[in-house]
Design a protein around this nucleic acid. Structure first.
Lengths: 197, 197
DNA sequence: CAACAATGTAGACGATGCAAACAATGATGT
DNA sequence: ACATCATTGTTTGCATCGTCTACATTGTTG
């Protein structure tokens, strides 16, 4: 019919890219495999070769999202210098930025409807959050945080970030209140885990 | 055709009840208006009289969810006696219980895809969270929390709870770690907002 | 160059959300 | 009591979607 080549070349990544764009603009609900195929210029059955069903595509999207989030968290921390509180604030800001700019994607990552609970997606999440763990360890080494298992205190921090993201994305928090809330939360966190000298 | 009465009597609440059940058991994605109508024993066009489209039904579900959440938070606090930390822990436990038992509903409440950002749903959410605000005020009166705007410190607490819920529901946290994380988070919160006497 | 695997196409099926036309019931005013 | 009217369900139709199967094309490999 058309004169495009029979084989796309890299359909899989093209689909993922376009899917991420559509999810960001219109949400997960509005992501249609058929429309995706149309956007990429391929028949509606083609995506099936790379993603056996819709959920598989969503899982892959979530996994890629964790990879990107981890990179942005590390990048923010690295660019923030050596001072621990500064690094902490920068990492938190990066998390919130990701969460607000890719709200639907974040929702997808935390959807809990995935096919392989203990599989690749979980590993991708752990890799992303290891950036936070390393930050916690630095804080403990700098005696800004009390000693103890980094995982435990890291989870508290992660939960707070994720919760703030949920509030903003849910519309329960005005945009002007966002920065203040993040600052308050970080301050709370630092004071709450300051070692008893 | 069948011998059931032409008018259902209270279709709207019947639909909401069945919808809440289906959402709890199979998630929001699997909620179909047509199946809902079949379950309630009515033609597939009937729900349209009460909910013009699917999103309207979801909005109503979310709104009812906030009402129920608020009730459970208040109930837990009231049943916990007078001691502030005890009340705080009880309220947090109630929040987490709701969040884990009705994970999909909670996701719906925080979905941010609602039709009326500043409307009835927002008010329902505020009413629900006013239970937390009153708790904060008691904590300040008891000098367990530093003085200041209750909204600000309340948001930090709410975000932490919601974040923990997201982690569990997302499968990033094992069930055995849940109670410990909640305890850690509450401890952090109390220490982080203890007044400097 | 011939077999084979990988990749994309085409058509079908059942289910869904939404819309409009129609039917039955309940309420209201006189 | 009865006609009128709004409310509430029913039925039919349509476009879209996800998935499945049979088939076509391309790239690779022995």
């Amino acid at each position: 019919m058309t004169d495009r080549p029979y084989h796309h070349g890299n359909l899989r990544t093209a689909l993922l890219d376009q899917a991420e764009r559509t999810v960001r603009e219109r949400g997960v609900q509005d992501l249609s495999l058929r429309e995706l195929a149309r956007d990429v210029g391929v028949s509606h059955g083609a995506p099936r070769r790379h993603f056996p069903d819709r959920q598989a595509l969503l899982d892959a999207l979530a996994q890629a999202g964790f990879a990107r989030l981890g990179g942005e968290l590390r990048g923010a921390a690295d660019a923030a210098g050596d001072d621990f509180p500064t690094r902490l604030r920068a990492t938190a800001a990066a998390y919130i930025r990701f969460a607000t700019q890719d709200a639907a994607l974040l929702e997808l990552m935390f959807a809990g409807k995935h096919r392989d609970p203990a599989g690749a997606l979980h590993e991708a999440a752990d890799r992303a959050f290891s950036a936070m763990l390393e930050l916690i360890e630095q804080g403990q080494a700098d005696r800004a945080l009390e000693p103890g298992e980094p995982e435990r205190v890291g989870l508290v921090l992660l939960a707070t970030m994720q919760g703030i993201a949920a509030l903003v994305n849910g519309g329960l928090l005005e945009a002007e209140q966002l920065d203040g809330l993040v600052a308050d939360a970080i301050a709370h966190f630092l004071r709450g885990s300051r070692p008893a000298v």
